[in-house]
Simulated scan of single mutants.
Amino acid sequence: MKQKFQINGIRCGGCVATVKKNLEAHPNIEKAEIFLAPKGATLITMKENLSIDELQKQLSKLNGYTITEIKQ
């Protein structure tokens, strides 16, 4: 299942790599695609649907990033 999100705090390719690695460390996330254009646009493929709170909890291991869902 793929869902679209916006991750605030993404500024460069290094941010993308760090956040991607962090998100993909979660056992229910198969793949995270994070884009610089538009900045912070994210497509996450999950095995099981995760709430925005669960995703933010995973991101809270890093400093300075917040995630919001993009309604389709």
Rank of each mutant, 00 (worst) to 15 (best):
T42I: 02
E33P: 06
T18Y: 01
T45V: 10
V16Y: 02
G9P: 09
G40S: 10
L23E: 05
A37V: 12
A37N: 14
T66A: 12
N49A: 13
L36Y: 06
L43K: 11
A17M: 13
D53E: 15
M1W: 09
I7S: 01
I7L: 03
E54F: 09
I7Q: 00
L23A: 05
F35L: 11
T68C: 03
I70H: 03
S51M: 12
K71I: 03
I67C: 07
E30Q: 09
C15V: 09
T18E: 05
N49L: 13
I67Q: 01
G9E: 09
T42D: 06
H26M: 06
I29L: 00
K39R: 14
N28I: 00
S60Y: 05
E69Y: 11
Q72M: 06
N8M: 04
T66E: 15
P38C: 02
N63T: 14
Q6Y: 03
L50Y: 11
I34Y: 04
L62C: 11
K61C: 01
N49Q: 15
K4Y: 06
C12V: 01
P27Y: 05
K31F: 08
L36F: 08
N63F: 06
I34D: 05
A41I: 06
N28C: 06
K61W: 01
N8W: 03
T45M: 07
E30G: 01
N49T: 15
K71A: 02
K39M: 13
G13R: 12
A37T: 14
L50I: 13
T68A: 10
L23F: 04
I29R: 02
N63Q: 15
T45N: 12
L55H: 02
G13C: 04
N8T: 11
K20N: 05
F35K: 13
I44L: 07
